[in-house]
Design a protein around this nucleic acid. Structure first.
Lengths: 164, 164
DNA sequence: ATTTTTGCAAACCATTTGCAGCTGG
DNA sequence: CCAGCTGCAAATGGTTTGCAAAAAT
């Protein structure tokens, strides 16, 4: 799942680890070693990932964390506001939701790439629509699906050259 | 999955069955009896539904269609542009996409109800963002998540109304 | 000491698929 | 007739869960 990171970071008052510990303390839960390993790995690089990739990468690095713990911790991190879920067609991907500006996504159904973009009007629409419907909005998902520039290019006006 | 129908129908040049037959003919496929039964049932009432509900309702009506055929036909109807998929948290729901205006959704995470709304600015944003990113947009999903008015009011130990 | 967490394996569950027989055109 | 379809049962695959051992406070 390739993905670039066009958006810059945002200044935050504490690290993900501190924020996670606070979250766990409130619920009387613990910041264990596997959770720390996972957290460090996740916030070490900024990209989209899924549970499976996490398991594989950690195994490759000899920092093994079991699949169940990965799933359980991902759920906690979402609840803690550190990660955001992206439900794609066949799997659930995650991205940083802390220390990173809020944004939405373009999803190329051809190459499966996800590109981020920021548009402030979306939240305005969200609030206006919620107000009209007596809805207390907690979040939204806006995903534009289609074909990215690269795939469009590689699609039609290119065939003839392949024929030699 | 309770859901009202706030939006009015739209004038179309042919019925869902005609449109589906055309779609199938182009691909050299057949409009069989199970498919007809399913299509009739789906377009008989306007509401959101999932594969399981369809199977149950048809069985209750003694118009049994097998689960596999339901799934296979739903996929065709989406490809044909007659239905639209809504990926909710735990399941895939469907709604009419033919003879019905384009719209987006509010999803109450408490009672799981989905409410439709129309906002023309969303498509404008979609086109603007796509242009900026060299993206050829084919569609979008905009889902606002939060708590609906009814659940806000009853905001006590209320459990989700998830039917089944 | 007590409560939470972990890893494993098994369970889940919506959806898909292989196949033998049925059906529409 | 023959490609395409159906129903059944079995397979899939991502995700969750039960449980006994391990770790945190």
């Amino acid at each position: 799942m390739a993905n670039q990171t066009p958006l810059g970071p945002v200044q935050e008052s504490s690290t993900p680890e501190v924020k996670f510990r606070e979250f766990l303390e409130i619920r009387g839960e613990k910041l264990t070693e596997p959770r720390r390993v996972l957290l460090r790995h996740i916030f070490d690089s900024h990209k989209h990932f899924d549970a499976d990739e996490l398991v594989a990468e950690l195994h490759a690095n000899d920092r093994k964390v079991s699949r169940s713990t990965v799933y359980r911790t991902l759920r906690l991190l979402v609840e803690a506001g550190l990660l955001r879920e992206l439900r794609l067609t066949n799997r659930t991907a995650y991205e940083h939701d802390y220390g990173y500006p809020s944004h939405d996504h373009l999803h190329c159904t051809e190459c499966n790439r996800v590109v981020e973009f920021i548009n402030d009007d979306i939240v305005k629409i969200r609030e206006a629509v919620s107000l009209q419907n007596g809805f207390r909005a907690e979040g939204h998902r806006f995903m534009i699906t289609g074909i990215c520039a690269a795939c469009s290019r590689a699609r039609s006006p290119r065939r003839r050259l392949d024929l030699i």
